[in-house]
Design a protein around this nucleic acid. Structure first.
Lengths: 358, 358
DNA sequence: ACAAATAATGACAGCGCTGTCAAAGACGTT
DNA sequence: AACGTCTTTGACAGCGCTGTCATTATTTGT
């Protein structure tokens, strides 16, 4: 069933058009000079007054503020930054937004940045290294105060740009590779390995891996390697691997596990997923075909998403502190801008969540 | 179980510190003037060459490009914009990022903007009107080429700023209120009403509403009003309403429905949720207490999220075209910047998904 | 071959703001 | 009363780039 405005009616005409809407007009915004004139002071005094009022007499300050208010003055930060101020914009490059993981990170970043009146300029690379490179170049041309990036297997060119950016750079999510400048995250390898140890400890000897297209997601790949490493330490090897193209999602997990089970018999099988949403999809599939979890099929996710924990059977997973990564990355950046000393690598750690699905 | 880097080891020392990292150095970036000098042309010719090369001889163009490459030149768009160019930054104000709905919208926005080499500067209001007002002022001070906002019951001040911004403004998600400039979205009221009609058509006469804190979310409120309106047209009134503080989420829905059922007996009861994730939580609760859906308890969500459709029983919901809203909003903005005529209100419509939960 | 058009280049000023340095006034001290 | 100190204000230049207009080289038409 499809509905449009005109079927279900409302107070608004759907398709009027506008060329000279209210916001196409050419009225020019007031400048600092006009505020200064209105307040009867010099431009620079007005500037100082509006920036916290250091070295400005109380009376003057009030006069300038009143003038600014009356004229509806909005400072032009382009000019301000160009003239010598700190930028107060932070470039943020993420590989994806369809995974709630990065929405969480962005959320954490934005929250902290905003407290310092900074704002993220966003770029999404879709896990494409060349795209990422172009993005970094583009964003850097705005001369941001710093840059935060969750790298998508970056090119040499990207790394060179970041190293020469002249501003603080925070690489987030994984702390295994040596950072260009700073890194905030967790050891993805260790997380994968921890899961392996846990599963082995629970007695599983048949373990399969199911993931979205891992070739472009370096962190998912590292986790898988950690998993295999951990398994190999108990002389277990992966029984099977299923990789499906496209970003991780509930339906994808559902489909992937169906394919897996076409080849591999359940019964004491544990399946590790690249992300919790995939695992939830698998759980739904199991419900659909009346497979008992965990007896017939054990499931383990990654990221500790809310949805996994809200399942009737809480999902075994590894909690990654995504919002905290965003928070810490922003704080690290801001601290460096204040000239403070900041740890080069910050490990937020992770937590293995022993759910009821294993 | 908690793991840190040092427990599970890796190649990186956790806490080295850095003050004069690679990116604190004071090396100054090359300017256009230096590129011009290196290429043996005037500044303005270099400028033209690097911007598409109109009115520049082929040979000159190549020389300038080579020089720029050699010097690792990154243009300074602050200066460029200040000197008269279009900004190529678009302010984006969203009420939340913890709801995947806005991550989707942002995704759509970013995709389209990027195709035109534009970038979003992001602000998140957390549904706080005063916060939103400050954000709009802050973002406008970057002189963006335009602004996209999913309003959080905006203040008069916010509306004034938007109306006087001097750039295109797109209000997204709801098209019921009269737009300041342009609007892209759907009629939230009609969506709620459509759901009411559907439920009535399915024979339900006892309908409850379960939502997150709706007082700050104007669109959820409008949907609820639409629902009530639609029900009233069949002389049905809401049996009960449960509102829980905090953003919508799976666990919250689970808890909310538990509370509802403490007061209201199931059996032919249909529950409408403010969002699909809430409804999924309710579904999980029902599984936990062995309530049969839809016989004992019918569930209807909103937004048509992937998770709802991946449930063993697909969730009845209303599909909102979030990514498309983002896409269209960006396109509308960009078209206006090209001087084209754009529909003042664009209705992306919605689709009622008749699932198996009703 | 010469005027007229076109293509290619450059000089200049200025976008709106802030850092630096200098000056002027207010105040207290000996 | 002369001096130093602190507070408050301003003049000036310049951040790096682009729009405008002017100038010079190159082509075309007849």
């Amino acid at each position: 069933m499809n509905y449009r405005e005109n079927r279900y009616g409302s107070a608004v005409m759907p398709t009027r058009d506008t060329r000279s809407g209210p916001n196409t007009g050419g009225e020019t915004r007031p400048t600092l000079a006009e505020v200064a004139r209105a307040a009867g002071v010099s431009e620079i005094t007005a500037s100082r007054a509006l920036r916290g009022g250091v070295h400005v007499a109380r009376a003057t300050l009030e006069r300038v503020e009143a003038a600014a208010l009356a004229l509806n003055y909005v400072p032009n930060r382009l000019a301000g930054t160009l003239a010598g101020g700190q930028s107060r914009q932070v470039a943020v490059v993420l590989p994806s937004l369809s995974n709630s993981v990065f929405a969480d990170v962005l959320n954490g970043l934005e929250t902290q940045l905003e407290q310092a009146s900074h704002h993220p300029i966003l770029g999404v690379s879709n896990y494409d290294p060349l795209h990422e490179e172009r993005l970094v170049a583009d964003l850097l041309s705005w001369r941001p105060a710093g840059l935060v990036i969750a790298p998508a297997s970056s090119t040499e060119g990207t790394r060179r740009m970041l190293a020469g950016a002249g501003v603080p750079v925070v690489e987030i999510m994984d702390i295994d590779p040596a950072p260009i400048d700073m890194a905030v995250g967790l050891s993805q390898h260790a997380a994968g390995r921890a899961m392996a140890h846990y599963l082995v400890g629970r007695g599983y000897r048949r373990v399969a891996y199911v993931g979205h297209d891992i070739s472009t997601d370096p962190r998912a790949l590292t986790r898988k390697q950690g998993l295999e490493r951990g398994l190999s330490e108990a002389e277990v090897t992966l029984t099977a691997t299923v990789l499906l193209p496209g970003p991780s999602s509930v339906p994808l997990g559902r489909e992937a596990v169906a394919r897996l089970l076409a080849d591999v018999p359940p019964g004491g099988l544990a399946v590790c997923f690249s992300n919790d949403d995939m695992a939830v999809g698998a759980m739904f599939h199991a419900m659909g075909v009346a497979l008992k979890v965990p007896d017939d099929l054990a499931l383990a996710g990654f990221n500790g998403l809310a949805i996994g924990q809200a399942l009737p059977l809480p999902l075994t997973s590894v909690e990654s502190r995504r919002v905290e990564i965003g928070n810490l990355a922003a704080k690290a950046l801001l601290s460096r801008l204040e000239g403070e000393t900041v740890a080069r690598v910050q490990d937020v750690g992770f937590r293995l969540i022993p759910g009821a699905t294993t």
